[in-house]
Design a protein around this nucleic acid. Sequence first.
DNA 1: ACGCTGAAGTGTTACGTATAACGTCGTAGG
DNA 2: CCTACGACGTTATACGTAACACTTCAGCGT
Lengths: 369, 369
Amino acid sequence: MRGAHEDGRHAAARTGPPEAREPAPRSAAGRGGGVTSRDVARAAGVSQAAVSLVLGDKWRGRVSAAKADAVRAAARELDYRPNAAARTLRTGGTRTALLVVPALTNEFFAGVHAGAARAAAAHDFGVVLYPSPEGIGPARDPFAAAHTAVDGVIASSMATDAVRALRAGGLPLVMLDSDPADAGAVATVNADVADGMRQVARHLLELGHRRITHLAAAIDSWTFTARGRALADALIAVPGARLRTEPAELSVAGGLAAAQRALAGPAAARPTALVCDDDLLAAGALKAVRRLGLRVPYDVSVTGFDDLALATAVEPELTTVRLPAGTVGAAGMTALLDAVAGRGAESTTVPARLTVRTSTAPAPDAQRR
Amino acid sequence: MRGAHEDGRHAAARTGPPEAREPAPRSAAGRGGGVTSRDVARAAGVSQAAVSLVLGDKWRGRVSAAKADAVRAAARELDYRPNAAARTLRTGGTRTALLVVPALTNEFFAGVHAGAARAAAAHDFGVVLYPSPEGIGPARDPFAAAHTAVDGVIASSMATDAVRALRAGGLPLVMLDSDPADAGAVATVNADVADGMRQVARHLLELGHRRITHLAAAIDSWTFTARGRALADALIAVPGARLRTEPAELSVAGGLAAAQRALAGPAAARPTALVCDDDLLAAGALKAVRRLGLRVPYDVSVTGFDDLALATAVEPELTTVRLPAGTVGAAGMTALLDAVAGRGAESTTVPARLTVRTSTAPAPDAQRR
DNA sequence: ACGCTGAAGTGTTACGTATAACGTCGTAGG
DNA sequence: CCTACGACGTTATACGTAACACTTCAGCGT
């Protein structure tokens, strides 16, 4: 059966020397991982096209059920793995998404990655992850190859320059932690940080706090701006409430320094609550309070944001806003997959909830209520 | 000289003004990222093969310097990006390494990733990262595609079942945190945890501690075994020294529980130092000590391991062993790249150093010295 | 008997790159 | 004057897959 067509096939195209005809398939036993769809076809007694149809699940009405079974059996038998490069070359699609975050050592972004990877895997997609371009240096553009290596991009707005480099790419782009009104992205996925901050404000107000200082991360990013505005909005209408803002470098040491500045001065003017943009800042604030000989939460209440592992490691444990990082990552990936598939992607806001622990207590000077 | 074989097509260009550009043969302006080496060839007036040679830096003696410059100029002009899939299909090499770690939310592994990615980027390699298979479920094998998608693998021994799936792959494999005598890997890269633990032991002994309890991570992994053995070896020969071991689930809560068990009983028999396999355990131990009404470090000293961000966030700050995660990742990647290139890869042990902070102090019962 | 339809397949092609194989044209060596 | 040879290029091909364009054949209504 085989070879019937081969004799005539090359007759015209062949100008070369009387080379010996290919005696051995040379394919099956060649390399370890080198079994191709043609090998499967040979084993199942069908054409390579049929293998592609069957394994691509597009065989209904094109291949008989019997042969389809034979193909699947042969594929399993030979442990056939489709060659990703060939498939990509043919279809133009890599089943891969690019995730761009500022740093994985930030636990929040590690969680985002985990959620995104899980959502991607459910659709047989992979995730590749580019570290901060700062870490790599400007000499090499890590995004040069993105167009050909990836079907779409999820990017945190905190990786600013990377995002700029990506804009021109023409790839579907989902933005994280970014202004929903931002153009250029097919969708935006945010944790509802504004609502989270409102819950913090309500919690502290109910505990009688009126002199509040906001330890604000000194990063020009939409999330932090939104947190600050939400806090201000929640306090502006409350009679007797006073909000101050203290910028802080985003680290434990930065929180310590900022809190020390915030707590300086006479006791009567001292804030009774420190609202921090991040759990790291809150951990620093805890230290500052203790170094002044004061106690959390009896003298000063402290709140965090994000609910990292840190929040329950410090003492007292932090009242903080839990941001579901995994959900954010998963929602971002879902939106991206929709966009890649041509369906409209929709922006999402995932809820954030205040988790009350032991770093907050009634304000020491609260008379009424 | 140019176009000798296709004069008919370009007839218009003979008299045309320099402005009369070829109106894009459907390729250049077609899709966003769709400029191929053939487009560059056309623009530079050479064959596609010449483009490949020049850009692959294999043109010496095959292409004139003038044409090579023209090719490079055209490539830059058109913003040509080689198609990774086509290149892979042709050469069989993806310039990509797979990193397998148990969880990125573990700060140590996030650091490993950062180091590996940096080292890879220096050689124009990318890193793809597979999350723990547990998170994905057994239905889908995330490693099925590895053979065709990746040139080599770096795996932490803590991702046990993943490693088993990879063994059969025939891909170069570098093991992290694994027994150096382990077969099957082309190289092993470890932090010198044994030496780190010896430094902990020496530090505590010099402070006069003799009753020591080891909070041991309840994970069957080479690193933790090595830590435990190193500690035991360092104490065995010291007269009067007593080592107990308390298994602990690897989390803050696990450390808390284990430390409470360790500290139960009469004060005279209580350990004066708790040596923890990990900073999370140490954070939990800190809490346990405080809940018993004791103080760190005056009543009980506590040491950690890894030097995570947590170590300086808690109070008191942890005396701990700093493991250079980034260096481990970079060394692993370097070894893997050597192996992929056919050069022999060498195993490495990167030094670990004790960082003394404020969670350790002289033993309360130390009479002499 | 005729054309039509749908099932069941196969042959062929194109994706973009790297490279082997093949030419051409001067020029140096005999 | 012939031959080798090196510089300079080009053509053709293969990598493995998916999909298009056909072909064959049976069933079926008219």
